[in-house]
Design a protein around this nucleic acid. Structure first.
Length: 176
DNA sequence: GGCATGATGGCCT
DNA sequence: GGCCATCATGCCA
């Protein structure tokens, strides 16, 4: 996670992401889609410098940066790179594997393939909100586990989604 | 399946 | 005041 956001985004596909519930059970699954947001990237929240909203992005790597958008949705990033660069990886989708009942309940009984196939859906399914902004991964309710070699998926790079600036970079990574 | 549209509020100029 | 790193729903096919 000390590496640049692009490297980390590529690496994280296939890793496992969980939240620890209040009853100590885990909820989550396998990361299947990420996007990188880098220093000097006009599409990044960090592009215009540090503000109250994005200050976590400029802190140490291995924390999570959560933002609120479109008046109703939360999205989750992992801060990467050397401190003060403002780089992060947006977690866009997971394949749900664990704690399915909790996810179904939070997602209003949507079919399983729609539980966490989008950045805001993922946060809703895992119960992640702005209250979790700045948490340290693996030292809080947020748990991230490397993929083992047998489960490492093939990864494809594509243009990022839902942005209007710097759209030419192939900084979205998905399982093929 | 695709496409259009409305919801809804913080953030920044 | 305009812009969003989005999603659900409704319509059409």
């Amino acid at each position: 996670m000390d590496n640049s956001a692009v490297d980390v985004a590529k690496q994280l596909v296939g890793w496992e992401l969980y939240v620890k519930e209040s009853d100590s059970s885990l909820t989550g699954g396998v990361i299947i889609e990420t996007e990188a947001y880098t220093e000097g990237d006009a599409a990044s929240h960090s592009y215009n410098g540090k503000t109250a909203r994005n200050e976590v992005m400029f802190g140490e790597s291995g924390r999570i940066y959560i933002y609120f958008t479109y008046g109703m949705h939360w999205c989750m990033n992992i801060v990467t790179g050397p401190k003060n660069r403002g780089e992060a990886v947006l977690i866009r989708a997971i394949q749900p594997t664990t704690g399915l009942e909790k996810m179904r309940k939070r997602r209003n009984l949507k079919p399983d393939y729609e539980l966490a196939n989008g950045p805001a859906k993922l946060c809703q399914a895992l119960g992640i909100t702005g209250a979790d902004n700045g948490l340290i991964i693996n030292d809080s309710k947020i748990i991230l586990k490397p993929s083992n070699n047998t489960k490492k998926p093939k990864v494809k790079a594509t243009p990022r989604i839902g942005i209007k600036k710097d759209t030419h970079h192939l900084w979205r990574f998905i399982v093929v």
